[in-house]
Design a protein around this nucleic acid. Structure first.
Length: 190
DNA sequence: TGCCTGATGTTCT
DNA sequence: GAACATCAGGCAC
């Protein structure tokens, strides 16, 4: 059988959100490498009133409607960035928000960027962007290439995934579209 | 431990 | 003009 470990980002946002758990997000900045294991995700799509894509294509959301496997980075609350992986077929407005990482490499650089201790480096969507220096300049970046890419790892077993409602939204709050690795120390809200 | 609030600017109505 | 896929710090308990 074929044993490719590549994630099919053109699957649904829910499928990709689960499948991304356990994979590694890698960031390179001026020769420095930072990496973390993805331990918490959320799904968004155009059928979903909580999603930026719900109202259709706008200058901000057009990347969500493009091909899968690209970065959607948005700015929010006047000071924070959040990082998503675009999913689904071209023309569908869907993405997976990366909400938390388990730091693996480059912790010294992350600590400088965050000015906090090891448990608070990447346990939230805006925190991990600050730690990994992810900002608007990476919006639309192809996530198979430097300086920001994902290396697929074997899936986390479904029995080790906790599924809950999403954080920080006011519409479509009932959807169970948040996924995290059960018991992981770096989840934003265990 | 948990609730409340201020910071701060972009996006869309 | 309102809302916002957040975070850190302050204060009450």
């Amino acid at each position: 059988m074929h044993t490719s470990n590549t994630i099919d980002f053109s699957a649904s946002a829910v499928e990709v959100a689960k499948r991304l758990l356990g994979s590694t997000l890698v960031r390179e900045v001026e020769g420095t490498l930072m990496a973390g294991r993805i331990v918490e995700t959320e799904s968004y799509d155009e059928t979903d009133a909580a999603s930026h894509s719900y109202r259709g294509v706008t200058p901000r959301t057009q990347i969500m409607f493009g091909p899968a496997g690209f970065a959607y980075v948005y700015f929010t609350y006047g000071m924070h960035y959040c990082f998503n992986v675009v999913t689904g077929k071209t023309g569908q407005g869907s993405a997976v928000l990366i909400r938390a990482l388990e730091p693996l490499e480059g912790l010294d650089t992350m600590t400088v960027n965050r000015k906090t201790g090891p448990n608070q480096l990447t346990n939230g969507p805006a925190k991990l962007c600050q730690a990994l220096q992810i900002d608007r300049s990476l919006n639309g970046h192809n996530l198979t290439t430097s300086p920001l890419y994902i290396t697929s790892q074997p899936p986390v077993a479904p029995s080790k995934i906790t599924q809950t409602t999403r954080v920080g939204i006011s519409k479509d709050t009932h959807r169970l579209w948040r996924f995290y690795v059960t018991g992981n120390l770096f989840v934003s809200r265990p």
